[in-house]
């Protein structure tokens, strides 16, 4: 928390504003990734729709990284991924590759037999 050369230049009240904004954003994020009740004033249905959209985005990103899982799981990918995602929200700093690896481990732990990965080089 120390040694950031920008700190000295920060305007008055910056820390308090950041604390208030952090609390507001945490409330929405927890509703979206942990399915907690949204903070007052939000439309509950819209928060659920946004949560579904985020999960679908997360699934598409993992699917793009792991076409082998798409091939293997077929129609089961979406429900399996959504169950995994609901139980394993992404921590700050984790990458999409981390997410794909964790999903694979989650599948294996459930006894899913996954084929070996092909790693062919190709330009596209």
């Amino acid at each position: 928390m120390t040694g950031d050369p920008h700190d000295a230049a920060r305007p008055d009240g910056d820390a308090e504003r950041r604390r208030r904004l952090a609390a507001a954003q945490a409330g929405l994020l927890r509703a979206l990734v942990l399915a907690e009740a949204p903070p007052p004033g939000f439309d509950v249905e819209r928060v659920r729709a946004q949560a579904r959209a985020l999960r679908a985005k997360r699934r598409r990103v993992v699917a793009r990284l792991r076409p082998d899982l798409v091939d293997h799981l077929g129609d089961r990918l979406a429900p399996l991924f959504d169950a995994y995602a609901a139980a394993n929200p992404r921590r700050t700093g984790s990458t999409a590759r981390d997410d794909a690896a964790a999903f694979t481990r989650w599948l294996e732990k459930r006894g899913e037999r996954l084929p070996g990965r092909r790693r062919w080089w190709r330009r596209r």
Partner: peptide
Amino acid sequence: VRGDGWEAGHLLPVPRTRDALEVLVA
């Protein structure tokens, strides 16, 4: 896209408040 230790994974709108604008500017 993140906060409170969680990664949303996609772009979320910011509140259009003075607080949010000041922090965004900084």
